[in-house]
Design a protein around this nucleic acid. Structure first.
Lengths: 114, 114
DNA sequence: ATCAACAGTAGAGTATAGTCTACGGTTAAT
DNA sequence: ATTAACCGTAGACTATACTCTACTGTTGAT
């Protein structure tokens, strides 16, 4: 699919997708048989971008998301290293959930004092 | 206390505290009896900054934090309005906790597939 | 008296994460 | 054949949230 369809599939703007491509999250491929220089994207690109959207919404930075994608799709790491990276991210999420619960408690206490 | 002590109490840098003061989170008071123009801060300033730190760590923007502080310390709103603002923030936190749990599940599934 | 350590203001600079504009080439429908 | 809708690149611009620099005045210890 071309970038326009990828944008429609993910809900991201074309600008943002290009930004993410420059950032390294996805790579389009040029079709050798055609004369134009349009990039083509596959289902993996959709899956990656959906992951980016989810990861962003829980507060991961693009840098952290890059690490997750590397551990998920990349071949830079051994299975054990990948597991370690992902377990670490789960730890980050657990920590964040704890902070959120604390904040809720604080706000609830404040409501009671109103 | 002066800004230096406030920085030590909260762990924030003096720069950041001044930035937050310009932003409207806290207000120092000048002591009329002294010739200098140093600002003095009270315990409320410490409490507010600690709240800012906590609220930031759960992903609230400075704009949202300003709303929370207004509902907590301000007198712009009625008690009912304040309660509504704070209940709304709790809703935001609940939503975020849900997203975090989802993300954890996704990462766990990925670990299993490694 | 002087000098380090602190106070204030104004404004410039940085990082992150986009967002947009200008430009020129391509494709598909009329 | 032409024109709207698409594609690509390069680079400028924006918002958020700091962070730092320059400059000047104050305080407290020696």
């Amino acid at each position: 699919m071309l970038i326009n369809e990828l944008a429609k599939r993910t809900g991201l703007s074309i600008h943002t997708i290009r930004f993410y491509e420059r950032y390294g999250f996805i790579q389009g491929r040029r079709n050798a048989s055609t004369t134009n220089n349009y990039f083509h994207y596959d289902e993996e690109a959709v899956a990656k971008l959906e992951l980016v959207i989810d990861a962003k919404s829980v507060g991961f930075t693009l840098q952290e998301i890059a690490e997750i994608l590397d551990a998920w799709y990349g071949d830079l790491y051994s299975v054990e290293q990948k597991r370690a990276i992902l377990e670490n991210k789960i730890g980050v999420l657990d920590e964040r959930i704890k902070e959120l619960r604390n904040m809720k408690k604080q706000i609830r206490e404040c409501i009671e004092e109103l």
